[in-house]
Nucleic acid binder design. Structure first.
Lengths: 130, 130
DNA sequence: CTAATTGCAAACAGTTTGCAGGCGT
DNA sequence: ACGCCTGCAAACTGTTTGCAATTAG
């Protein structure tokens, strides 16, 4: 396996995750990193994201019904909130799964995913219900 | 809006949901309904599924990282189990969300989705860990 | 009969891959 | 200079849509 080089596109993508502390979609990363690197290709973003998952720098976050997101690897167990208005995803600390759940016989649970959906604070302010 | 006709392909698709009591992907529906209707096109399956959601006969079930599923509409609130081995999805009765959760200020929760993943009973038997 | 429905193929959106040139080291 | 990395375009997968032929009512 080849070793990594420090290119400006790769660096820009890493910096995007340093300055935005929430899970980002490939499109968001492209848009944000594009601010630093003129003409950054979307293929490069996908390649960098996949590489960084491989290198255990990032973790892929799959959520129901929306584009996949990526967040820094090594975070404590947590779940996510998806804003239906702006489509952004936010981290929610702690585990939201009910303890002591009982499943039918024979099911072995290896992991769980929980997503809350609704309206984020910013969108609540900007789009008052009145 | 045009009114519905009873075609054999539409009937076959409806029957698939009568005989399989778990959420099915478009591909699964196509495969299963194909047994009744020779040459059933995948576009027809997609159109039927979308129509049936529109008619409130089915509900779309989005799960993290896997193809969307469809299940009969009107079921009681519940969550899902995804078998990592056979990729089938099963219903889990009851709500698995911890009660009394606290979110940061400003977040309004409108819905939640929970997916447990692991191994289903059938796959546990067929692929013993030894 | 007559219009809704189907199957096919083309169109699409998101993601991956092949390739020639560019650029870290 | 070497070879990894990038950008572009083509390939792919899952889903939707246009259209002529088919078929339910």
């Amino acid at each position: 396996m080849p070793r990594k080089r420090l290119t400006k596109q790769r660096t820009a993508i890493e910096e995007v995750f340093e300055s935005h502390h929430r899970p980002l979609s490939p499109g968001e990363v492209h848009e944000l990193a594009r601010g630093q690197v003129e003409g950054l290709g979307i293929a490069t973003v996908y390649r960098a994201l996949n590489d960084m998952v491989e290198e255990n720098i990032l973790r892929a976050v799959d959520l129901p019904g929306i584009a996949p997101r990526y967040e820094k690897a090594g975070l404590k167990h947590h779940h996510h909130f998806h804003c239906n208005t702006c489509d952004k995803v936010f981290d929610l600390d702690g585990c939201l799964l009910k303890p002591d759940i009982r499943l039918p016989d024979g099911f072995t649970v290896l992991s769980h995913d929980i997503t809350l959906s609704g309206v984020c604070p910013r969108c609540s302010k900007e789009q008052p219900s009145s």
